[in-house]
Nucleic acid binder design. Structure first.
Lengths: 345, 345
DNA sequence: TTTCAAAAAGCAAACGTTTGCGTAAAATTT
DNA sequence: AAATTTTACGCAAACGTTTGCTTTTTGAAA
């Protein structure tokens, strides 16, 4: 950024003061006279001075940059999280730089290197689907760069986390399906090496067992990506079972919507023949017909919380905060896709 | 970022070489012996050296940071643009930092100041709805920081732009409605002080006139935000007109979806009673029933293009590229919401 | 008037790189 | 063998701040 950038030195020269005095004046340091301080500020404004944060960062050996690693920005959930992070960061004087791992471990590793050379003050990350081992993040422990994982987190690394209780949420959705009379509930599941999706499956199972309903592995369709297409495909497959399910709990809203459309195409009624529930409360869940029952995963809140936790750790580094884990409350949002007369046998 | 960070000095000490030699070796400078270079790299790796880009940026007086200002991250369109920007930036070795203006002029101004102190190498921005006057961006001209606007651009400022031809696209959508037999076409419009929305209205008008159809101001419903709710509200209002429209062109997909649901609620058939078209080709436009005819505004492409243009300007600064404007091709995507038998009177 | 403390400002080093210029040794040419 | 070029590296300043320590100035106490 060349051009005629005004520096602290220019101000010093113009006022016959030393650069240290100018610097202190601009920080309203008490050891500088009130009069001088005022004049410095005035001249700075007049000359269009802007502090150079690069120089400042170098000297102070810290930046106000928060590095955020998301699988993809254009997934609704993550765009909400980022929005929340930016909201808090902006208020607190931090900048947010974004990197997409695109669910690739290789890329995630490369990004951690970039973050290290960029001297970020802290990191917020959601692990790539491919990532099993998080050793590439461990360097930040020794560098004492705080790290907050959200949603897809790592358990084999000392780091803060903000998550939802996927087990509990899944179990509540399933219970809701049961409460509305479903007895043969299928599940369209995500990649089972990812803990949140494994937990959702477990929550589903637990609810079944709790209600003395048999768990049937044939009723679980595993996807790798939880896309709309996979949802539709899963539903079509479930519809070919000898015994049709009367409810489907999908591990996210995309698959739920795919499933709904596949079911409608098969001329079955939702929720009467099959009730469908999703997970995430994406905006589209109110658009689909019937509107989708789902779990609000509080993405925006998750972003804000992650940012607050991170900034606190950055600023109270001396306090050496032990890493903490926050579990956000989730809400079950009941809509038309499961709204049928409660049946009590 | 404290902790035991290894610097170039440490390497120099360990190898009894000067820091300049190390620096050059790490850049594979030809004036350093091949043997030495190899050894330096090896030691760097062994000691876990990472360059400090803050120091490097200061010395080189430039960063590899691209500042992106979007109205909101969680709007589908912008999240796609950002994704495209990040994609290119990552490949070219640039970092992307994101700021949300939340359509507030005040905040947009504050962000430009932040970008200036952060010494960004270049800026990609979509103007806030509130922004009429862009003088707060003009500082980057004198600082010689390249600037690329996308979608909502400014005409009273020397800067590159990547846009779509809103007039043409709107005119094509409208023509399509006419071709399918619509004769009384309404328009749900965006905020008319924003040029893209004004152009869409103009394109709509032009198509009408070209086909000898009267333009009726009562057939235009102006919204400020183009939200789902406003779309529904606009449709309800249009349905109360003495003469019902037989087609509605909506300035974006959100309003189109709102309109579709309002129309369905009024027990009118889409597209038979009223055909509906949107603008943007959001994912939800394939989910809504009937699927929505719309314009693909190529958001991801727009982001990639903006990033490429910006980076070229950053790197060829000497060449002093005159600002350029790129108009992206748009595609009319025809779906069920307008698919009716072509009527030729 | 001398003494001393407080207030206000300056000096200079440091942050970790990059880079123009200078120089010694080695290799090449006369 | 001397002169010249090439190769490989070092010196030191610079980028724009921040900050520990020192110095000067001012006003009050002795």
């Amino acid at each position: 950024m060349p051009g005629a950038r005004v520096t602290i030195k220019d101000l010093a020269k113009r006022m016959n003061l030393s650069v240290s005095t100018i610097s202190r004046a601009l920080h309203n340091h008490p050891s500088i006279g009130a009069e001088t301080t005022r004049e410095v500020w005035q001249l700075a404004k007049q000359l269009g001075y802007f502090p150079n944060s690069v120089a400042s960062n170098l000297r102070r050996r810290k930046t106000n940059m928060i590095g955020v690693i998301v699988p993809r920005i254009d997934i609704t959930f993550h765009s909400y999280v980022i929005s929340g992070v930016e909201e808090i960061a902006y208020k607190m004087g931090y900048n947010v730089t974004i990197y997409q791992s695109r669910d690739s471990l290789e890329r995630e590793i490369a990004i951690t290197s970039i973050l290290q050379t960029n001297m970020v003050a802290g990191i917020i990350a959601c692990l790539a689907l491919e990532t099993q081992n998080c050793s590439h993040f461990s360097r930040f422990n020794s560098l004492r760069v705080p790290l907050v994982f959200y949603d897809r987190v790592s358990n084999d690394l000392e780091a803060s986390k903000v998550i939802i209780d996927d087990f509990d949420a899944a179990s509540r959705v399933t219970q809701h399906l049961i409460d509305t009379g479903c007895r043969k509930i299928a599940h369209i599941a995500g990649c089972q090496t990812t803990s949140i999706f494994a937990s959702r499956l477990e929550g589903y199972k637990a609810a079944l067992l709790r209600n003395n309903l048999a768990f049937d592995p044939a009723m679980v369709y595993c996807t790798s990506n939880l896309t709309y297409e996979e949802g539709a495909k899963g539903a079509r497959k479930l519809l070919k079972l000898p015994e049709l399910p009367d409810g489907i709990f999908c591990a996210n809203d995309y698959t739920a919507i795919g499933a709904i459309q596949a079911i409608k195409k098969a001329n079955l009624k939702i929720p009467d023949d099959i009730a469908v529930a999703g997970f995430s409360n994406y905006p589209v869940s109110t658009i689909i017909e019937p509107a989708l029952t789902t779990i609000d995963d509080r993405a925006f809140e998750m972003g804000k919380t992650a940012a607050r936790m991170l900034i606190r750790q950055i600023e109270e580094r001396d306090a050496n905060i032990a890493s903490e884990t926050v579990v956000l409350r989730t809400d079950l949002i009941i809509r038309e896709s499961t709204r049928r007369e409660p049946v009590r046998p």
